[in-house]
Design a protein around this nucleic acid. Structure first.
Lengths: 217, 217
DNA sequence: ACCAAAAACAGGGTTAAATCCCACAGAATT
DNA sequence: AATTCTGTGGGATTTAACCCTGTTTTTGGT
C-alpha cells in the first residue's frame, strides 16, 4: 500500500512533534518532513512534493494563509489541510480562498486528524462541523456575497454610528441624547446591527469593534 | 522504577493528544490524566494526585494561571510546569508567582519537554533561556516595582474567576450555574471586583480583560 | 486557641435595560 | 404602483443591575 506522504507545518516544535507522534500511529500516513514557518513550508513542498500539508495559520516570517496560496499556485498537486486555533471561523472564506482543501480545529478529536488527511488526499474537502455550518448559512443567505464575509459594509451609517458609541461604553440613554432620538430608536439600531453582524452579546461586539479598529483597547 | 505520574492540560485536543503521544515515548513518564481547562485540571489533580501537571495558559472557563494558583495552594505536592505560546515572557512573573515550578515554550525542542518534567519532579526549577534572561535583567534593574499598583492583585480568587467568565460573555445566570452558587452571589462578586478595578461598565471591563490577557480579541 | 477581618454566600426591593412584537413615514428601487 | 430599506418609535415582558442587608466560612495574627 502507498502511504500518504505528509508535511507538517507548525512553529511550535512541541506541538509539531506531538502531531507527528500522533500520525505515526496511523499505518497509512508517513510524515516526510516538517517546517516551522510558511517560507520553510513552501521550500519543503518543492523539495519533497508531499501529498498533503498540514498547515498552522499563525506563524512568524510567513503565515499559513500566504504559504497555502503559494503552494496552491506552484504545486497544485499538493493538498493543504489547515489547522485552526480559536475563533478563526471568521477566516473560513480566506482559508478556502487561499486554496486549502479543508481545515480542522485544534480542538477537534485527534482521531479526526487522520480522517481529514485521508479525505483531502482522496480529493475530497474536509470541513469541521462549525465550518460546514458557516458555509451552509452563507449559502442559505443567498450565496451572492461569497468572499466578502465581513458584514460591516452592510451596516447603515446610523448603525455604524451607534456601534461606535456602544463600543465606547455609552449607555442607550446617552446615545439617544447624543443622537437626539428616542432610546427606543437606539435600541432598534443596536438590534439590527447586531443581527447583521451575527453578534449576540456585548463582549463579542466589543471584540469586533476592536478588531475593526473602531475603538482601541 | 517509579514512573512520573503526569496530568496534561490543554484545550486543543489534537495538541493535547500529540503531547501525550510524545510523552509515551519517555519510559519514565506516564500520563495518568488529561484536562481541557483549568477547572477540570484542578478536579483531576484532586482525583489523581499526579506528580507533575503540564499546563497550558490560554484556556476557556479557567486559565492556566488561575488553575496553577489553586493547585499550588490545595495540593502543594503537585508540581506545575507551564507551557507557553508566544510573547508570554511578559507573564513570567505572573507564572512564577502563581506557583509554577517552571515553564517551557511550545517552540522548545520536544526533547526538552521530558527534561523539564524530570527537573520539576525532582524539585528543581525549569526556566527557558528567555525566561532566565528576563529574570536577570529584572534583577539588574532593581526589581523594585513588580506587580505594583495594578489592582488586579487585590482581587480574590473568586473575583478573578468571575471576571474571566464575565469577559467571556457568560451571563450572570450562566456563571452562577458554572460556579454552582446563586446569581446573587455572582452579582456580589462582580460588584466588588469592578469597585476594586475602578471600572464601571462592561465595555471597560472587557477592554481590561483583553489588556490583561485574560481573554483574547 | 481565639478573635477580628476578609471573603463567599444569598435574600429583598427598586430601578434600569434588554428583548420581542409591532407600527409607520419617507426615500430609494423595481 | 408596489416593494424594500432606513430611521423612527410604542407597549409589554423578561432580564439584569443596583443598593442594602445579613449569615456562614475562611483566613491571618498575636
Amino acid at each position: 500500500m502507498q502511504k500518504i506522504r505528509m508535511l507538517v507545518v507548525d512553529d511550535h516544535t512541541i506541538v509539531r512533534d506531538g502531531i507527528c507522534a500522533l500520525l505515526a500511529l496511523a499505518a497509512d500516513i508517513e510524515v516526510v518532513g516538517e517546517a516551522e514557518n510558511g517560507r520553510e513550508a513552501v521550500e519543503k513542498v518543492k523539495q519533497l512534493a508531499p501529498d498533503v500539508v498540514l498547515m498552522d495559520i499563525v506563524m512568524p516570517i510567513m503565515d499559513g494563509l500566504e504559504a497555502t496560496r503559494r503552494i496552491r499556485k506552484e504545486f497544485p498537486e499538493t493538498k493543504v489541510l489547515v489547522l485552526t486555533q480559536y475563533d478563526e471561523e471568521e477566516y473560513i472564506f480566506s482559508i478556502i480562498e487561499a486554496g486549502a482543501k479543508g481545515f480542522i480545529s485544534k480542538t477537534a478529536a485527534s482521531s479526526e486528524l487522520a480522517s481529514g488527511i485521508r479525505a483531502v488526499h482522496h480529493g475530497a474537502s474536509f470541513l469541521s462541523p462549525t465550518a460546514a455550518k458557516v458555509f451552509v448559512e452563507d449559502f442559505q443567505l443567498g450565496a451572492s456575497m461569497r468572499g466578502k464575509q465581513d458584514p460591516y459594509h452592510q451596516l447603515t451609517n446610523r448603525e455604524r454610528e451607534v456601534l461606535k458609541l456602544v463600543a465606547e461604553a455609552y449607555t442607550t440613554r446617552e446615545i439617544a441624547d447624543i443622537l437626539a432620538v428616542s432610546p427606543k430608536t437606539v435600541e432598534g439600531h443596536k438590534t439590527n446591527l447586531m443581527d447583521k453582524l451575527d453578534i449576540h452579546n456585548k463582549t463579542d461586539l466589543i471584540k469586533y469593534a476592536i478588531r475593526k479598529g473602531i475603538i482601541t483597547v
